[in-house]
Design a binder for these strands. Structure first.
Lengths: 351, 351
DNA sequence: CCATCCAATGTTTACGTAAACATAACAGTC
DNA sequence: GACTGTTATGTTTACGTAAACATTGGATGG
């Protein structure tokens, strides 16, 4: 025999590690189609036959090959999630809820991390997506980073966006940023503060933008003058810097901070500089991270229901998948809830 | 098991939404094998031909079908990550690093959330895994939840565990919990404290267990008597409760807290009860979450390099995949680093 | 000028599954 | 007893890709 033993050079591939339907069928003495029926839980298989097939499966350690299954069915039962880093509480909680809801629907979630929030990076993620086995994509990201990339997407991949304002071109699910901000400002004004300062998030974030806009609008609506805007970058450190600045302003008695991390830094700065919270300055945050109740003092903040956002994402994207012609655009907003703790009080003058 | 409910009923599935290699081949006037070669970047394709194929691909919006590809190649280029909720900073950061490292190696990451840390839930996740398209699994979880479940895994799926002590049966990558704890205790003793109290994590966590053990060992080694152990559940709230308890003990001048969140709550309780930090009590945390530097006072803590843990996970699991016979067990430890901030100082008596 | 080689491309086949179609055995019905 | 339906099972085929093998048309060299 002259069959040269060919070594594949590399990729020492696995040889016959998995049992296929045919193997199970042979052992059980049935056709592979019957194995398929048992595997998929179809009715119309004799109980005795089913038992034999199941026994054979167990003996061989049969595991359906999901690649073949996906190829045959034309779907992967997988949703891709693109997100810029998992550093923000909100993204993580949303992702978690998405994964849980998806699992409940029999879908898996594949993570597509984007290292930097640049268009190049996002485009890279979508390019990787080309290779990936997903039926739909949920993007947790500012949409302006998205536009250049989505055009490369095959049309049957449904896209859904979180944390964005792209209601016209995409289906969007998000927290009601504006409503939450309005509630926060009104709460402070209701306590008797003359006006409310604002420590906003970075300029390139739409979420931050909407919170800032709503803050301004709520003040205007109440006939107050908006103090100058101060910006942070979501980090506690940037909140601290802002706090040092604000501590010097005697006229600042109430601050609406765009997230809880910055509020943490702000609290420290204020109190380091001798401004008591809430006696001298009231502070209100956004997100209601688990630690917010343990700040000093416990932080009054706007609670976001990330779990609900995730649930709605999955529901919406599955609906789109099942009804591709729907083409529904538009935004779904998830309401917020004000959690009043101890960082807000009437201004001392009002006592 | 009575299922009998046939779901399909109708499957209006997609008809020819995707262009296949054959379509591209037809348009470009070549064979589908040539398209395959271009698609996979093989050399030995005439430049002119390649251009035409690429043009045809673009025109048809061709996207390789990863199911077919996976079926042919026998691998999915996907790693599954099983984790109990994404509520802990550590898990999230590790996951993020895993996703990034995997992406760099051309692998995707599929998330398998486990709602509750019970054996049933974990077994459920592994059952779902049966359906899933993954080449390997990384488990971020206590291993005692794992044992009942892994036996169901097909042998060619490599398993790697984080946050566990299962070095004998699994490959484990983890932070050097013991080393970090020892450093923390020694730091406090070095400042002159007579002994160090400990607020530990929940009893069912091996990470917590190891931190507690190392705390006790370091005290013994230094000839100190270990005060009674206090336990929390990782949450800031539980840290607060522990803090109230400790504030009453005049003899408590130094506390090693098993994570930063609990330290946050502890700080609040101590100071609420008039115990100044660090003048009266020194506090040291574990993790070095981004906010730790903004606590009041900024928290001295043990920094964990989660990114490195993630990188090593991916590296180890890929190595196992490429060399299945290796069977390497054992633990890889990632060193920690003490970050000294302002929550630790010599005891007042030592001044 | 023919044998040889090589580069470029085409043809066949198999991966594992499941839909579609086919068959067989048997129970009612008239 | 021929006809119809039902249930349980088998056979064929196609999904899209890529490895293995086959073919073509020069160019090279003796």
């Amino acid at each position: 025999m002259e069959m040269a033993e060919r070594t594949p050079a590399k990729t020492p591939r696995q040889g016959r590690v998995t049992a296929s339907m045919a193997d199970v069928a042979r052992l059980a003495g049935v056709s592979s189609q019957t194995v398929s029926r048992v595997s998929n839980g179809y009715a119309g298989v004799n109980e005795e036959t089913r038992r034999q097939v199941l026994a054979a499966m167990k003996e061989l350690g049969y595991r359906p090959n999901s690649a073949a299954r996906a190829l045959k069915r034309g779907e992967f039962r997988t949703i891709g999630v693109i997100t810029f880093s998992l550093s923000s509480t909100g993204n993580v909680r949303t992702l978690e809820a998405i994964a849980n809801s998806a699992a409940a629907e029999g879908y898996a979630v594949t993570l597509l991390p984007v290292a930097l929030p640049t268009q190049d990076e996002v485009r890279g993620a979508f390019t990787r997506l080309e290779e990936l086995a997903v039926d739909a994509v949920i993007v947790i990201m500012e949409v302006h980073l998205l536009d250049a990339a989505t055009i490369m997407l095959p049309p049957y991949v449904q896209v859904l966006v979180v944390d964005s304002d792209a209601g016209e071109h995409y289906t969007v699910v998000d927290t009601d940023q504006a409503g939450g901000s309005r509630t926060a400002v009104r709460h402070l004004l209701g306590l008797g503060h003359r006006t409310v300062w604002h420590l906003g998030g970075p300029a390139d974030s739409f979420a931050a933008q909407r919170r800032t806009d709503a803050w301004r609008a709520a003040l205007t609506e109440a006939g107050c003058t908006a103090p100058p805007l101060i910006r942070g970058d979501w980090s506690a450190e940037s909140g601290y810097r802002a706090g040092i600045e604000l501590a010097a302003r005697e006229d600042c008695t109430a601050v609406f901070v765009a997230n809880d991390q910055m509020a943490l830094g702000l609290l420290r700065a204020l109190q380091e500089r001798g401004r008591r919270v809430p006696e001298d300055v009231s502070v209100i945050g956004f997100d209601d991270i688990p630690e917010a109740g343990s700040f000093m003092p416990p932080l009054t903040t706007v609670h976001q229901d990330f779990a609900e956002v995730g649930r709605l994402c999955v529901r919406a994207v599955l609906r789109k998948m099942r009804n591709p012609d729907d083409g529904a655009r538009g935004t779904t907003l998830v309401p917020t809830r004000l959690v009043v703790r101890e960082s807000t009080a009437p201004p001392s003058g009002a006592r």
